[in-house]
Simulated assay, not measured.
Amino acid sequence: MKTGDDRPTPPLRGDERETLRGFLEFHRATLAMKCEGLTDEQLRQQSSPPSTLSLLGLVRHMAEVERTWFRRVVNQELDLPFLWSAKGDFQEAYDASRSTREEVFAAWEAEVEHARRIEREAASLDVRAYFARWEEDVSLRMVMVHLLHEYARHNGHADFLRESIDGVVGA
């Protein structure tokens, strides 16, 4: 699989963990690529009222998702506050109307680094941790697949947002 750009190429014949990790890195890089070359104002441009969805809002949301699943769930950092919501509301992350690229990307990149460390230190994909919201244990495998689902879905949103800003499409 060739991307034709600087995104990491997921392995074509890797084992399960390498493949999950490779596609997660690919999707992380895709979200960053969708934001390249845009001003803060463009990154805050909302999709269509009343939605507050914007590219910067998607990055904020994914920082929250990375933080929740890897740090709160897998690493059991239970007292870790949300980044952008005192109420623990994931929807608040979408409103980036007063945010800057610098602050949002710093938070997202920090959460991605935590997630990478936690995943690499885990003994296997079968590592389990309790997820209070579901009242169930979940495996690291499920967490990684869930993150892939989140990134893939939101990268689709990012495609439309980017096209509406400056006409850039693809990848």
Rank of each mutant, 00 (worst) to 15 (best):
R67I: 04
T30P: 04
L125E: 01
D95L: 09
D159F: 09
A106T: 13
F70Y: 12
V145C: 09
T3P: 00
A86D: 14
L80N: 06
T30I: 00
W69Y: 10
A106L: 11
R7F: 01
T30K: 10
F70W: 06
E41S: 14
F160A: 14
S48T: 15
R7V: 03
Q42M: 06
V104L: 04
Q46S: 11
A63Q: 08
E163S: 05
A107N: 14
D79A: 12
I165F: 02
V73Q: 06
G4P: 03
T9G: 00
D40H: 12
L140T: 05
E36N: 11
F131G: 03
R60H: 09
E109N: 15
S97E: 05
F70I: 00
D6F: 14
V169I: 13
L83E: 04
L55R: 11
H61F: 04
D95Y: 09
Q76R: 15
E102C: 04
L58K: 08
A63Y: 04
L58S: 04
T39R: 07
L12R: 13
H157Q: 15
Q46H: 07
F82C: 11
L148T: 01
R67D: 02
F131A: 15
M33N: 06
L56V: 10
S97L: 06
V168G: 02
G170L: 07
V104P: 09
R17A: 09
V59M: 14
N75A: 15
T39A: 06
R162D: 13
T19R: 03
E66F: 03
L12M: 12
L125C: 02
L12V: 13
L53V: 08
S97T: 15
D89V: 08
E103C: 01
G88S: 08
D159R: 10
Q76I: 03
F70N: 12
H114S: 14
A106Q: 13
R162K: 10
T3W: 03
E64P: 11
Q42C: 04
S99T: 01
S48A: 15
S85K: 12
G88I: 08
A96T: 07
M1S: 10
S47E: 10
L148K: 01
R116D: 12
Q46L: 01
R13H: 14
R72Y: 04
L161V: 03
